[in-house]
Structures are given as structure tokens and as C-alpha cells.
């Protein structure tokens, strides 16, 4: 049941697709403990996700639902499932590229626009032009397709 709850801002994705849903555990006395992780520190959708999980699980007959937050290991866009990426692409949002494990030590400075191999989710043409590194939500960047000229959102690698 918990896996059917969708993201409050991107309703095509379930919390499971997004990699936000860490663990669902039925404890001995019949209660359910759900563990989720925030995508961004300031993600305003966390409270909505929590509410939705409690509501869906209560509706499914679980009276005692506890939603826990796990901060470690930190969520990364690499956790978005293949199914989730396919859904994003189908709905006109370019999924994030692989980020890989976080490197230790100082983070290198990037003074040139970030180079990503971003393909237009509509016509699949490359290259796309970065319009803004910050989109309407903290997790997206804005691009414009070089071929069909349509603007689209790209989920940032983080």
C-alpha cells in the first residue's frame, strides 16, 4: 500500500519510484512503521508525504502508523528507479544522469555551465541548452531542446 503513495509535486512518480520510501515494517502488534528520507533539506513536500502515507495506510486498516525520517545515507537522484525514469521521460521531464558515489574531500568549483548529456524527453534530440540551473522546484533545472525548441525540466543530479 505504502508503495502506491505518489509524490505530492510529481504525481506520476510513487514515493517508491523516487527512492524516498526506505522501509516498511509491520511490527509485532500490527502497527506499521514507514521510513522515508527527504530529497532536499528544505523539501516542502515532506509533510505532505507523511500525511499521505498515514492516510493511505489508515484507510487500508492499519490503525497505528508511524512515519520515521532517515537522514542517512542522504538521498541521491541515483535512487530514482528505472521505472521512475521511464515515467518521467514519458511525461516530458528529463531524468537525472548518474551521479555516482559522493567523492570525499573538497568539491571542485564549476564556473562553466554544468555539462550534462541531456536529451529532450519529447523528440530525444541532443543537445539541449541550459536555460536555468534552478527550476520551479528545487530539484529541477530548465532546458530548451536544440531541435524542437520546446522547453523542458530536467531533474538535477544531486
Amino acid at each position: 500500500m505504502a508503495a502506491t503513495v505518489t509524490d505530492p509535486e510529481l504525481p506520476v512518480l510513487t514515493l517508491e519510484d523516487l527512492g524516498v520510501l526506505r522501509e516498511v515494517e509491520v511490527v509485532d502488534d500490527g502497527g506499521v512503521v514507514v521510513t522515508i528520507t527527504p530529497t532536499y533539506s528544505g523539501c516542502p513536500a515532506m509533510a505532505a508525504m507523511r500525511d499521505d502515507l498515514v492516510r493511505v495506510l489508515r484507510a487500508a486498516g492499519h490503525d497505528r502508523v508511524e512515519v520515521r525520517t532517515a537522514l542517512h545515507p542522504a538521498w541521491s537522484s541515483d535512487w530514482i528507479s528505472e521505472a521512475g525514469r521511464a515515467k518521467l521521460r514519458r511525461h516530458g521531464i528529463s531524468p537525472p544522469g548518474a551521479r555516482g558515489p559522493a567523492a570525499a574531500g573538497p568539491v571542485p568549483l564549476t564556473l562553466l555551465p554544468r555539462q550534462r548529456a541531456v536529451a529532450c524527453p519529447r523528440c530525444e534530440a541532443v543537445p539541449a541548452e541550459l536555460v536555468s540551473e534552478f527550476g520551479p522546484t528545487a530539484c529541477t533545472a530548465l532546458y530548451r531542446c536544440g531541435a524542437c525548441l520546446e522547453p523542458f525540466e530536467h531533474l538535477k543530479e544531486i
Binding site: 527527504p38 532536499y40 533539506s41 537522514l71 542517512h72 545515507p73 542522504a74 538521498w75 541521491s76 559522493a102 568539491v107 568549483l109 564549476t110 564556473l111 554544468r114 540551473e133 534552478f134 538535477k156 544531486i158
Partner: peptide, 15 residues
């Protein structure tokens, strides 16, 4: 854990 999350975010801010 707060710091690990913050590093990814502040990298964008600094760039």
C-alpha cells in the same frame, strides 16, 4: 547526515 545533504545543495549555490 545534515552536512552530507547540505554539501550537495551548497555546491549548487557556490557554482
Amino acid at each position: 547526515a545534515i552536512a552530507a545533504k547540505g554539501v550537495a545543495e551548497v555546491t549548487y549555490h557556490r557554482d
